[in-house]
Amino acid sequence: MSIAIDKITRRFGAHAAVDAVDLEVGSGELVALLGPSGSGKTTLLRIVAGLEHADSGRILLHGSDMTDVPVGERNVGFVFQHYALFRHLTVFENIAFGLRVRPRRNRPADAGIKRRVEELLLLVQLANYGERYPNQLSGGQRQRVALARALAVDPRVLLLDEPFGALDAQVRKELRVWLRALHHDVRVTSVFVTHDQDEALEIADRVVVMNQGRIEQVATPAELLAAPATPFVRQFLEGARSLAPA
């Protein structure tokens, strides 16, 4: 198992944002956490990354217990909803950041960093954009820089928080297809959060439907559509099917 979530609970006051959630994600899988806002999916993702702590439960990455390991040592890639690119750094330096902050003994030489960044720029279709600054890029371009930056450190898992949430409809559709293809090539275990049913059904190998801090159902997109396990899942997916392109 790449990611094992074991009875994770997180409370904000009396309200349980994540309520004793169990979930396992296999190596190389692309899993969607799907649910309405307030269902606890982003909190769960941030707990896996180490950006939030859990009140109880354990997080295992590739078999080792990460529950008390600080965020910087978990070696996860995280893509933020609003990209969170370093605004004062060029695209090149944004992607190089994770390599440059390594301790000297396992930091690649400048030439190695340059090669790696150029490789990634090519991968995300931004080969000639290395010298640009984030605010000279469109939303879709920024999102791809954020992805390249997260991949630069060879993360054990890739976590994406509403990766297309801030993009307009046309661009997000195109980027979806592109992300699916990228995942097919890179094959890093990935979990992404979304509230968009179509997005989850179209890209993910498996979809985790969440509601009020609990998991309602875990299934492949086909199973989910064929046999929704609870009334909530059926209702939540209804919107998607009527909107889905024929």
Partner: peptide, 10 residues
Amino acid sequence: EEEAALVLGA
């Protein structure tokens, strides 16, 4: 941005 830096190992 600070969170992004921390995740990247800074």
